[in-house]
Design a protein around this nucleic acid. Structure first.
Lengths: 249, 249
DNA sequence: CTTCCTACTTGATCCGGATCAAGGTCCGAA
DNA sequence: TTCGGACCTTGATCCGGATCAAGTAGGAAG
């Protein structure tokens, strides 16, 4: 199958399908973009369902178009640790590996833009830029994972919660292209339990610390999920991170 | 397991310089190997000294030839978390990034095989295979970082120590190409404090748990650093990991 | 409306690992 | 040889977060 060049502006597919945007569009190589575009297919996974289990054969790679998924690891006795939070535009899968290393679970309804792994690998061979972008993205993920190691190993429960909220605000704000002024607000995309699994805490501790931050006036909440940040700097102070190095630099 | 291509000559450089071995030699492209080989230079860093500070301009990439280095992150109040342990053949640096994201410190005397970053990036452009190998290596590191997140977030102190010992045994054994039979022994390459920073513990807890493992007969120690593992399976049971999935699969 | 269920909150208690403190051991320098 | 310092061990106590337990809020189905 071949692409029908029925495109006026190459960016339409980019908007449509983040994987193309992030892996290819750095220099917007239109021809390759169209070739790849023709091979994509979509897949939706309902909230709560698992996309792949750790150890499963995984014959595709994908990028999140909408919704939220998690990467988790579980020990035999049930202890669970989330090792990644996948938001729209994030990449799933490993060119060069056939087995999934972690469980991927949809937290909300998720739409994936997929490519058969083999197809994608061939594309990578022919288009070095894709591999380079993927390397860049992977290096970023590695940095993020290492930042998270500091959080898991050394931060207090309160700092962990504040850091998570700060990260969600930032990702949220960057998606909505908002400035830092005005009261920031958003809905928590995770249950207390999912937050606990991400932060290496129990759900009770998460609940208590959120209440504590509310009582201190660092955050306000309407209902159980809707959070308002009256003063971002106030929240950032609670994260334990360097004032404006690191996360928001 | 990966097949080792049996070639007579070009491997001399490989032995010499792990970065060539790991980044280029998967298919042993001799010409490129020699071209790259001509551009390398060596650098040695004495034990205890810092190779680069987080945030520093870093105009080279390197691979560890000998010795042990650590990747660490420190909060303003001094809390420290090691986020990576760099052993011979590991890669240091980020093509495409100019600033170091973490502190790199030599734990023992370290010899690095370096390339100017620009040189290496040009080489990557011309030789897609290098980028592909680097992507593969980075994905492996990402998996390792995520495994470590489970350790930091969910494992007990005893499990953490056992896991660290198991990892050291494995890396050590693979370097020496030993089988799993006979008593395994090695010298700890880290101080109690460095282990604590790696595991998200205090040095006192590390010391106590090592004593506890000794009293249980899981390990034996001569002096403070030399460890013997009388029964590897015994140690593996203590790690909390799946019997023979995961780490030793 | 009631019922049920899931997600969440809050309280009481417990415990693993942190913290504080006091040695011990080994090694290199004077 | 003694001294000082880095590294390690062990004991006593403390505390943050886990665990156990009870109850609340709110949405969906009947």
């Amino acid at each position: 199958m071949r692409a029908q060049p029925q495109v006026t502006t190459p960016h339409i597919q980019c908007e449509d399908c983040p994987i193309l945007h992030r892996a290819v569009c750095a220099k917007c190589e239109t021809d390759e973009l169209q070739e790849l575009d023709a091979l994509k297919y979509y897949r939706t996974v309902p909230a709560g369902h698992t996309v792949v289990w750790s150890g499963d054969e995984m014959d595709f790679v994908a990028s999140i178009v909408s919704g939220i998924a998690t990467l988790t690891q579980t020990m035999e006795d049930g202890r669970t640790q989330m090792v990644g939070l996948l938001l729209p535009s994030d990449f799933v899968g490993r060119p060069g590996r056939s087995e999934a290393a972690f469980d991927v679970t949809a937290t909300t309804d998720v739409t994936l833009c997929c490519f058969r792994k083999k197809t994608f690998e061939e594309m990578m061979m022919r288009t070095p830029r894709i591999g380079q972008r993927l390397l860049e993205m992977t290096l970023d993920e590695l940095d993020a994972a290492r930042e998270w190691m500091l959080l898991l190993g050394r931060k207090t429960a309160r700092e962990k919660i504040a850091t998570l909220l700060a990260i969600i605000v930032r990702r949220d704000a960057s998606l909505r292209l908002m400035g830092k002024d005005g009261p920031l607000e958003f809905d928590l995309p995770l249950t207390r339990e999912a937050m606990a699994d991400y932060l290496g805490l129990t759900l009770e501790t998460v609940s208590r610390q959120i209440s504590a931050l509310r009582k201190s006036g660092v955050i306000e909440l309407k209902g159980k999920r809707h959070i308002t940040i009256p003063d971002l700097d106030r929240l950032l102070e609670e994260t334990g991170d360097d004032a404006d190095g690191g996360m928001f630099a």
